[in-house]
Design a protein around this nucleic acid. Structure first.
Lengths: 249, 249
DNA sequence: ACCATTACGTAACGCCCACTACATTAATAC
DNA sequence: GTATTAATGTAGTGGGCGTTACGTAATGGT
């Protein structure tokens, strides 16, 4: 959902294997002629994801990736193209495995405050889910890269922008559903929430615990303006008045 | 003020010149015997700062630095030691030139809301002051560095922590001065403000304008709980009591 | 059986990095 | 003057990076 155009950032795909054998990784018999590969492509990709997540894009050396994936350079290049393509595929995998469900849950949860609180709480968990402090791969893995990795950074920046847009869409819906005041500055609020998410990612990389991050998340929830029944700024109150549920896949 | 121990992170200083000739850069006559240097050390340092700020620590190549500083490698190494020491000196210079006044102003401003609003507004200006999007050097210049640059990253992490501590100290004072409710969770609030500052830095590096950043800053100011005129309950207090306030100074 | 095709392991390739020998030049000390 | 000290420019150093030749091994097609 949040990730739409990742695979298209590198149009020249050396590897089109997933076209002809979509589901098979190692179990299904291979249709093509040559020697079959001796490693599980998805397992290798997942291991590469771990390296990229912990080290970042440029500090992750191909030798390190090869060691973690337990394959040699020629196998890696034959299966994934090059470092940038491997990284972008790892990012796609990362979003699918770690974030998509959480984003979807934010969209599905009716009450805006519960939706946001749950999202940020879960985010705090994801950001600290690795054994080593990492933060969010989309946010951090390509910061401070040299000029030649600009394409990768641009791709990740687009994904970060998608996150901000998700916040905005969700907040707009909350206004329509009268869970937020009509005069709420949803644009600034969405940007601020996205800013906090990115900041939390930096904090997580600095070693902040999940508990502390969730405390920040809880504090950030006070950014959501109280629903004005009629007056100005009363206390927060949740008498659920949900109308429609916009499900989008 | 915020920067205290930068110079001590690299105890082995090749260059102790600033001990024997503290103020002279090029103007004052040199006391020592040998051939005098033909470049202004502070000017060179300032140019190095620009390169590090825009490129980050590791992407900044020594060749790039030499070109910007208009000196050759041997002169650079003789004057600054090595890349890490040059960077830390640039960080010190960066704090002095760009941030110290702003931090100090936050401390000096009586009203907490005005202090915070001014700080974040000025921060938005600093983060976008370079021609190229950069963000904050302390926050971003050493993210995603390889293992061998860990010392540099640790030094910057300590500086980031100092920033959070500055927020905390200022907030505590505001509580004492009864500008914030007594039950304010100053620890979480300080962490959240620091998180937003770091997030703003990432946004700035992604190209966000000063205007948008200031909009975020204004939105973030709603995090500050309203001053309770009497014993009312102005702020949510669901996270129980807060302990573990680490006082460090 | 034989070929075409594909993945494999070994061993490198060229490039750029931070860093430095070395001879030279320019100042002070005596 | 001569000696001493220190900064300079040229031209490299070794090392790690991403990537790839190349010969071999293992499959399917016929």
């Amino acid at each position: 959902m949040t990730v739409t155009g990742v695979k298209n950032f590198f149009a020249t795909r050396i590897e089109e294997e997933n076209m002809k054998s979509k589901k098979q990784t190692q179990l299904a018999p291979h249709k093509s002629k040559g020697r079959p590969r001796t490693f599980d492509r998805e397992v290798a990709l997942h291991r590469a994801l771990g390296v990229f997540w912990r080290s970042g894009y440029e500090p992750a050396a191909m030798s390190e990736l090869c060691a973690a994936m337990e394959i040699n350079p020629p196998s890696l290049y034959a299966a994934f193209g090059n470092k940038a393509q491997l990284f972008m595929e790892a990012v796609q995998h990362y979003e699918d495995v770690y974030w998509n469900a959480t984003w979807q849950r934010m969209e599905d949860t009716r009450d805006i405050r519960e939706a946001m609180a749950t999202f940020f709480s879960e985010a705090a968990g994801i950001l600290t889910s690795q054994e080593v402090p990492c933060g969010c791969m989309v946010i951090l893995a390509a910061t401070n890269v040299s000029q030649e990795a600009k394409e990768v950074n641009d791709a990740l920046r687009a994904l970060r922008q998608e996150g901000r847009d998700c916040f905005l869409t969700r907040l707009k819906r909350a206004v329509v559903e009268e869970q937020l005041p009509a005069n709420t500055d949803v644009a600034s609020l969405a940007s601020t929430l996205n800013t906090i998410l990115e900041g939390m990612s930096l904090q997580a990389r600095d070693g902040m615990s999940s508990v502390e991050l969730k405390r920040i998340a809880a504090t950030a929830m006070t950014l959501l303006p109280a629903k004005d029944s009629e007056g100005d700024v009363p206390q927060r109150d949740k008498s659920a008045g949900v109308k429609t549920r916009k499900k989008r896949s």
